[in-house]
Simulated scan of single mutants.
Amino acid sequence: MSRLLSLWCALLTALGLPACDAYNLRALQPGVSTAAEVRERLGPPQVEWPNADGSVTWEYSRQPEGVECYMITLGTDGILRGVEQVLNEAGFARVQPGMSGDEVLRLLGRPATRQFFELKGEAMWSWLIERSTVVTDRTYFTVSFDRAGQVTGTGRNVIPKN
């Protein structure tokens, strides 16, 4: 039965539906699971971020429709060190004025949208952080950049339910 569920989750993941993230992430154990197991359960990462200590962090962003971005760190030995869901208040607080776009991507992963406002000379990236339901509106965490690509500020953008 577990094998059937794994196959079903793999199919959904291949279709771009991260419905089985919780199941797959629970099966991964820091200090035990290997890079091959992570790749088997979650697929290839969107980005591989090298770390100063030789480890690597794999990005699994569920943007633009999901509200998660998992950063999975693997040691130099290929063993899982940790899993972090970075689209949360602690992650948002790490974004500081003066950071580059690459630094923001490293913290929060791929954004749901990127816009440039020519008259203001400003770019804005947005991450979906709360999905629409029957009751709620869509909420995005936003990061604004100047023409030089440096963070000027952060905020929230709520898109009212139609």
Rank of each mutant, 00 (worst) to 15 (best):
A90S: 09
L105P: 00
R26S: 09
G54M: 00
G91F: 00
S126M: 11
I79C: 06
A52V: 10
Q46C: 04
E103A: 12
S61I: 10
G101P: 00
V83T: 11
I79V: 15
W125E: 03
L28G: 04
P160S: 14
L107Q: 14
T133C: 08
R114M: 13
S144A: 15
I129M: 10
G101V: 09
F117G: 01
G31T: 02
E65F: 13
E37F: 10
Q115H: 03
E68A: 12
S100N: 02
A52I: 04
K161V: 06
C69W: 01
R138A: 09
F117N: 13
G153I: 04
T154W: 10
G31D: 08
T34E: 06
G54W: 01
L42H: 07
A22T: 08
Y23T: 09
N88W: 00
F145G: 02
A27Y: 00
Q115C: 00
C69V: 10
C69N: 15
S55N: 03
R41V: 04
P30G: 09
G98V: 12
A90E: 14
T142Q: 07
E118N: 07
A36L: 15
E122L: 14
L105K: 13
G91H: 03
L80W: 05
V67H: 03
G98D: 09
W49F: 13
R106L: 08
L42E: 07
E68I: 01
R147P: 02
A112E: 01
V134P: 02
W127M: 06
S144M: 12
R81C: 07
R147C: 08
Q150I: 01
D77Y: 13
Y23H: 13
G66E: 07
G149E: 08
T133E: 05
R39F: 08
R94A: 14
G153L: 03
T34N: 05
T139L: 13
Q96H: 07
G153T: 08
Y23K: 06
D146A: 11
P64C: 05
A36G: 13
L25N: 01
Q96S: 07
R39M: 09
L108E: 04
L42T: 08
G98W: 06
T76I: 11
Q115I: 03
E59C: 11
E130Q: 15
L107D: 05
R106W: 06
L74Y: 08
A123M: 11
G101F: 12
Q63W: 03
A22W: 02
L105Q: 14
V134C: 13
A90C: 01
I72M: 02
R131G: 07
V32W: 08
R131W: 04
A35S: 15
E59H: 10
A22Q: 11
R94N: 03
L28P: 06
E59R: 04
L87E: 00
S100M: 05
